[in-house]
Simulated assay, not measured.
Amino acid sequence: MAVANAAKVSPSTVSRAFNHPDLVNPATRKRINRAVEKLGYIRNRAAQAIHGRRNATIGLIVPTINHAIFAEVIQSFSDAIDEAGFTLLIASHGYSLEREYDMIRKLMEHRVDGIALVGLEHSEATFRLLRQQDTPCIAIWNYSGTSDMPCVGADNREAGRLAARHLLQAGHRDIGLIFPSIEGNDRARQRLEGAMEEIRAHGVEVRDGWRQESPYSITLAKQAVRGMMDSDQRPTALVCGNDVIAQGAIFGVQSRGLSVPGDVSVIGIGDFNGSLDMEPGLTTVRIPAEDIGKVAGQRLTGLIVSETRELFRYRCDLKCIVRGTTRPLT
């Protein structure tokens, strides 16, 4: 009724907008959606649940399930909440913060007991909805000492610094960077910022054309590297936004008849499953995904069971794992 009053329509029109939106005038739908967002209204699709009783479900929304990037953290998070008697509902938003908001609403309509999100960058509508519904929530993968949201993760800016520092300490000064779009992706943005800060702190500037953008795709990362390798002046080392991009970068270097690390050193970030088994093994900054998922699952279920709203911030340790894709510049 509150939505109908705010949108100045009948309750039946609101119901129709939810269940059969194609039968409602677009302008009317827009007015109803504005009222829904303003009020933080959530339909109860689990109305059969006993009032006040937990449904023992937790929603996890990740940017993608198309790569191994989040596989390990998802598995350990799922194991941790399972031990506490909760079931996982998972969704992906494809790096769209607007779609993430829609996913959160759908999970809340099913009356999940808690929400886990990746990263600390979300739309204002998302933050407002979480406040309005007073839903226990946690941010996974990112750490910030000033976060207003409970978080369990890594300092991604420091991860970028560690990757660049390894190459700089190995004597490299001609350094290229391959990172995904930073739009709506605070992990990528902070890693890139950290790498650039470390490079500039050593009095080094990245040449024009040596900073390339690639999504989390081996194929597209391979293509992005080829241009750098074809120029008269090419970098002697590459910092990659994560291990998927690093793998593509290695293929791109090799496709031009060059060797890794003989001609070009490559470092990734993440240390995903399989990075050790590459030939040569990938040098990378290890982010302990299993620990992050486990701690996040334990902390979130603890919030739900205790019905508290403790603001905690857990920072995991990072480590540069040196393998076979980097070498000192002689």
Rank of each mutant, 00 (worst) to 15 (best):
G171F: 02
H20Y: 09
V305N: 07
T64H: 13
Q133R: 11
G59P: 05
R211Y: 10
A27Q: 10
L89C: 11
I175E: 04
E121D: 14
L130K: 09
V3M: 00
T64A: 15
V206T: 02
G59A: 13
N44L: 04
Y41N: 11
I74C: 07
P280V: 04
H110Y: 08
I292K: 00
G227R: 09
I250W: 06
A201S: 10
I81F: 03
D208H: 04
R200T: 10
T64I: 06
L60R: 03
E197A: 03
R234M: 15
H93T: 07
K222R: 14
I321E: 08
Q132F: 07
L107D: 04
T236R: 14
A46D: 12
Q247F: 15
V260F: 13
I65Q: 15
I321G: 05
C240H: 08
A17N: 12
I178C: 00
N242Y: 05
A246Y: 02
G248H: 03
E193A: 07
I138K: 03
Q254C: 12
R131C: 08
E83T: 15
R200P: 03
R34C: 08
D291Y: 04
S15K: 06
A116W: 08
W141Q: 14
R211I: 13
E37F: 06
I61K: 09
F18T: 08
L162G: 02
E198M: 11
I292E: 01
R256Q: 14
R187F: 10
E205D: 13
D134E: 15
A71S: 15
T146F: 14
T28N: 06
A35G: 05
R31S: 10
V73K: 07
L129V: 11
S144Y: 04
D155Q: 01
S181N: 03
T326F: 02
D82L: 13
D82V: 09
I69D: 09
A237R: 12
A221T: 13
L130E: 12
S78N: 13
A224G: 05
A116T: 03
P288L: 11
G227A: 08
D79T: 00
D79G: 02
G184F: 05
A170P: 06
V295W: 00
D79A: 11
Q48A: 10
R16E: 09
T57W: 01
F312D: 02
I182Y: 01
D113H: 10
S259W: 11
D148L: 14
E279A: 13
P328N: 11
Q233F: 02
L167W: 00
P11R: 08
I321T: 05
D230R: 14
R211V: 14
P136M: 02
R45S: 10
T283H: 00
A46Q: 13
Q254A: 15
F272P: 10
N33P: 01
G194D: 07
G194R: 12
I245S: 01
I69F: 15
S231I: 07
P328K: 10
A289W: 00
T135C: 14
N185R: 04
R54W: 02
E121V: 10
